[in-house]
């Protein structure tokens, strides 16, 4: 549910990076932070353990400029990937507008990818969100790793619904912005749909316009 302030002419959306532990979610937003002009982004906040594992979430606020006179703010969150942080992970999905599933291309992580996707579906359902209706983009990360799974193999496990997908090497920045841009597009298309099908018979006196 994007947040729209008609007075300040601002729209804010929450994007969550989800996926198995050590898959590159934090690396994605670190790259975005490093490659975005300081005036267009806020502080990157990392709630991590001493061993640099995400404990609760990473957070990066981004200003993407204006669309039709509205300032657009994207708040990027990552989830902790480790299996035992499931309770914390689920909390981050609250109020999500779009999701990026970061899959690990290593063969040894195929089961972890599958498990993580199942967790995500369950978590969304617990919030009353349908997995197949949420704006979702899949990123196949670590494409440069020797012996990486083929995209076809990964797709059959983590992208059965045919969501937009991108190959990435997040540590080098490859595919990072393409993935984010794709999910932003889906979020805006969802908003467009919502505004065009929104109720037209609401009571008077509320718009304040």
């Amino acid at each position: 549910m994007p947040f729209i302030n008609l007075v300040a002419r601002e729209i804010s959306c929450k994007i969550v990076y989800y996926g198995p532990g050590l898959g590159g979610k934090t690396t994605n937003i670190e790259h975005i932070s490093a490659r975005t002009k300081p005036e267009s982004r806020g502080q990157l906040i990392k709630l991590a353990t001493e061993a640099e594992r995400t404990l609760f979430f990473d957070f990066l606020p981004l200003d993407l400029g204006e669309v039709r006179g509205f300032k657009t703010r994207f708040h990027l969150y990552t989830t902790p990937g480790q299996v035992y942080y499931h309770a914390s992970r689920k909390l981050i999905l609250k109020g999500v507008d779009g999701c990026i599933f970061v899959a690990d291309s290593q063969r040894a992580r195929l089961d972890a990818n599958e498990q993580s996707l199942e967790d995500m579906k369950e978590d969304l359902e617990d919030y009353g969100l349908a997995f197949d209706q949420l704006p979702l983009v899949v990123q196949y990360n670590k494409r440069d790793i020797p012996g990486a799974l083929s995209v076809e193999e990964l797709r059959s496990v983590v992208n059965p619904n045919g969501a937009p997908e991108f190959e990435a090497v997040a540590r080098l920045g490859v595919g990072v912005f393409e993935t984010l841009k794709s999910v932003a597009r889906l979020v805006f298309l969802e908003l467009k749909k919502e505004q065009n099908t929104g109720p037209s018979s609401e009571p008077d006196g509320g718009s304040g316009r």
């Binding site: 267009s40 039709r68 908003l191 509320g206």
Partner: peptide, 30 residues
């Protein structure tokens, strides 16, 4: 409580109903 009963509507004058691909592409130009 009142706010939650009034979701986004075409009458709000927000421009999102007419968004084009170009609008969205422009967001990432910087």
């Amino acid at each position: 409580e009142q706010l939650s009963q009034r979701p986004l509507s075409p009458r709000d004058g927000a421009p999102f109903g007419e968004l084009t691909d170009e609008d969205i592409d422009n967001l990432f130009n910087d």
